[in-house]
Nucleic acid binder design. Structure first.
Lengths: 248, 248
DNA sequence: CCCCGGCACTATGGATACATTTCCTGCCAA
DNA sequence: TTGGCAGGAAATGTATCCATAGTGCCGGGG
């Protein structure tokens, strides 16, 4: 890819991966010495990586108190969805005026990819990664077509908010996935016709519903979200000090 | 303020100021050794500061090629206004449902401040800073009332785009300023009545017009924008290598 | 018994020294 | 003259060392 040939970039990727995958939990303190040793680099590039991650929104920092994995409240997650809905709806409106034959075909292909992945009547586990990629690509493509780089940039940031990302697929209810994919089809259709407001409205609903569904899933299967402390209900006794477990 | 007592933060502030004020021009290469010496610090905190500035959008970075002051195209500036319009309009919609007596009074006070500043029938140069502050406060207040932290955060980023910021006041035409201030009055009024869509529409126009006006000013008085290379028309022969002027 | 102050330890911030990459320059050959 | 290659100067990336702020413990005093 983009040559991770500096230790700094390497550290950034590893850390981002560790955070997004849940290996590092929100609230965890990011010890410079330990992390540096774990990654096999010195503290200098590690600190550079952490500094970058701060402004990416994955990590927090306080002078002389170090870095920590950022925590999100549920309100922040909900707010992230709301802004995403607004920005991606905007992207649809703009993209409608920019559609080319190539753009139409690109979107159509992504829709077809989804059709194929869902063809079995359920989302096979081994297809989940592909589906996720298709989903991300679809949204990214629309935003790119809008021609407004800020939209992509900001939505990208929002993808760092746990559970507010396209990466998260609610795989339990197949009908929900089917409907979500059908939204894509309708958005592509509206865009192909140059009907920006129509596409925009579908996109807004598409994302708004995702939040609603997340909320529902959260109540039904809270255990699925244990690694996402924004939803870790009790959550006033923060974990993170797993070091000294007082012998009960 | 917020303890600028680490060299890193100090460097960040100085650099930001230098960039926003135009002392450092977009495209300028940011030499680590020289800057460090100028600021009287070593390269370590300087690099930390630069890394931070990268993610705030003021500076660009390429591995092994160093940092440079970011350049913006006119399209990017226009796009920044468009996203600002969308996000701040959204903020109005949300804020309308959150209005308290205190909030009403706060907005009313800001409007009154503006009234006082414009009372002389023109914007006195010595009042420009105050007016600018009032303007920033007004927009920030509305966004805060929306309760969605992402809106503030993103609009904040956009303020780093040259000429897309509230900090920039078009002072030439007093009627434009008066009208802009009247928009504030109407927005505050609509919000006080809980009429979010109405406030939202005015806000959108408020910002959209600002872009249009900027465009007009650019054509009338291009010399005012020489320090903002997004508008530096010819601009294929970038300055920045002012060091070695080949003897013509 | 609780609170306060000081001390030691730990972790972070910054500086310097070293390694690696880039890029400029000058030379050579086509 | 021009293109390319090689060598070296310069700038960036990284490691290590020192300084300093933060934190927790301990003891003394109220």
């Amino acid at each position: 890819m983009t040559e991770p040939h500096t230790s700094t970039e390497l550290a950034m990727r590893k850390l981002r991966e560790a955070i997004l995958s849940g290996d590092l939990l929100p609230g965890d303190k990011l010890h410079q010495d330990r992390l540096a040793e774990m990654l096999g680099i010195s503290r200098t590039p590690l600190r550079a990586a952490l500094t970058t991650l701060v402004q990416t929104g994955l990590v927090t920092y306080e002078s002389n108190r170090g870095f920590a994995v950022r925590e999100f409240s549920f309100d922040e997650v909900a707010g992230a969805f709301a802004v995403r809905a607004e920005l991606e709806a905007m992207a649809c409106r703009l993209a409608a005026g920019q559609m080319t034959e190539a753009a139409n075909q690109h979107l159509a292909r992504l829709v077809a990819d989804g059709d194929r992945l869902l063809e079995p009547g359920r989302l096979l586990p081994e297809k989940l990664a592909d589906y996720r990629q298709m989903n991300v690509d679809f949204h990214t493509t629309v935003m790119q077509l809008s021609g407004n780089p800020w939209i992509i940039s900001f939505v990208q940031s929002l993808h760092n908010v746990p559970a507010a990302s396209d990466r998260v697929i609610m795989w339990r209810d197949f009908r929900v996935i089917e409907r979500s994919h059908d939204d894509h089809r309708r958005i592509a259709h509206a865009l192909a016709l140059g009907q920006g407001e129509r596409a925009s409205a579908i996109m807004r609903e598409h994302i708004t519903f995702a939040l609603e569904h997340l909320h529902l899933q959260l109540q039904l299967y809270p255990q699925d979200f244990l690694r996402i402390p924004a939803f870790d209900k009790p959550a006033k006794t923060r974990p993170g000090d797993r070091s000294k477990r007082t012998t009960a």
